[in-house]
Design a protein around this nucleic acid. Structure first.
Lengths: 123, 123
DNA sequence: TCTTCATATGAAGAATGTTTCATTCAAATA
DNA sequence: TATTTGAATGAAACATTCTTCATATGAAGA
């Protein structure tokens, strides 16, 4: 890195590209389900498979981008690979989402992906 | 809404679907560029078009999900439509992304979408 | 009302992303 | 080392999302 102003420029200019990778990785139901189940506790692939009810191959495929983005970490443990959630990033992220949800989408009226809004119209 | 435990269940179960809409809307370079430029000041469509250098039609198409998700708001002003960023959600969100970036992706090594990592390997 | 400027919309082709199936790899244990 | 178990990988079929082009809408001014 040449100097500070280069770094500033990089960060400024890079926000769009940076965020694109970040959010693309999160914009997938299987990966979100993995995140959700790992928020309970670290798990092996087999445990994740059982927990979210998807094929092993699919879970593996979706774990890769999560690891590459450092949303989860892996360690080997005998025959198993244990996946752990990066709470430090995920927690504040989900808190922001939930705040937004409660404030702006409370009754599910104006959201583009409507699946979840049906869940919330149970009053 | 029936009671508190129903609400808890809804929030708990709904996180995956909720986040999916949220993150899908953000997982797009054009929409991120719109967000980035609107972080400067509110703008009309024409101004956004000039600022990010994309076709008017494309900007319009991409503004819709941003509005529906309440990431931006619109008001009419004479002939124009002025789009304003919802700072309340976007600011903490980008802060989390940037923290993550600095901590885990500082040298761009392990990220799945590599476009931006080239920008950062300029040392 | 006719025209113009600003923006939105629809639809089709192009580009990306996801899912599945078959196969491979790697560690443990017999 | 052969076998078994746990997990990753590759490729093709399938699905979703983007981009573009043409057209429509709607407000303001002539």
């Amino acid at each position: 890195m040449k100097n500070v102003s280069d770094k500033v420029m990089m960060v400024k200019q890079g926000i769009t590209n940076l965020c694109y990778g970040f959010f693309s990785t999160l914009a997938n139901p299987t990966r979100l389900a993995i995140i959700e189940t790992l928020s309970e506790r670290p798990m092996s692939v087999t445990e994740i498979v059982e927990s979210i009810g998807q094929e092993q191959s699919m879970v593996s495929h979706n774990l890769r981008p999560l690891v590459q983005c450092n949303f989860v970490q892996v360690r080997r443990e005998g025959k198993h690979r244990i996946y752990t959630l990066n709470q430090e990033t995920i927690e504040p992220l989900l808190e922001t989402v939930q705040n937004h949800f409660e404030k702006y989408c409370g009754n599910g009226v104006n959201c583009p992906h409507r699946d979840w809004s049906e869940t919330s119209s149970m009053e």
